[in-house]
Simulated scan of single mutants.
Amino acid sequence: MSVLFYIFLFLFVGLCTLLCFVILIQESKSLGLGASFGGDASDSLFGTSTAAVLKKFTAYLAGFFLLVCLVLSIWSSSIGRSAAKAPMGVTIEEGP
């Protein structure tokens, strides 16, 4: 189960990186990161509706990020509780 948790955590870090990149490439009032690469405001990768596409993609990605964050939080707390209940190699004996 812990291997699956770490794979899921690795994918979560990738999702965080993708979300940061998508936020940075959006146009702002000062042209955003696109101006840093020499692009003009009229140039766009997806056509004329780039802003709408990126806004929707960012919204879906942010919603997925929040959902995955919540699942990882619950999952890690359950792992912590199960580890605290039964420490490895320790047995507790009660007296008569």
Rank of each mutant, 00 (worst) to 15 (best):
L9C: 05
F10A: 14
F12G: 00
F12R: 01
F12T: 01
G14I: 11
G14R: 04
L15M: 09
L15H: 07
C16D: 06
T17Y: 13
L18K: 10
L19W: 08
F21Q: 10
V22C: 10
I23T: 11
I23N: 13
L24Y: 12
I25T: 04
I25E: 01
Q26A: 02
E27H: 11
E27L: 05
S28Y: 04
S28C: 04
K29C: 06
K29R: 10
K29M: 11
K29P: 06
K29L: 09
S30D: 13
G32T: 02
G32V: 01
L33G: 00
L33K: 02
G34D: 07
A35T: 06
F37Y: 07
G38N: 00
G38Q: 01
G38C: 00
G39E: 13
G39K: 15
A41G: 06
S42E: 13
S42L: 08
D43T: 09
D43E: 14
S44A: 13
F46Y: 09
F46W: 06
G47C: 01
G47N: 01
G47W: 02
S49Y: 11
T50A: 14
T50V: 08
A51L: 07
A51H: 11
A51R: 15
V53D: 03
V53W: 08
L54N: 04
K55R: 15
K55I: 08
K56D: 11
F57M: 08
A59F: 13
A59P: 04
Y60I: 09
L61S: 10
L61F: 05
L61M: 11
L61T: 03
G63E: 08
F64I: 08
F64G: 12
F65M: 06
F65I: 00
L66W: 14
L67I: 14
C69K: 07
L70F: 14
L70S: 13
V71C: 05
S73K: 05
S73E: 07
S73G: 15
I74D: 08
S76L: 04
S77D: 05
S78D: 07
S78E: 11
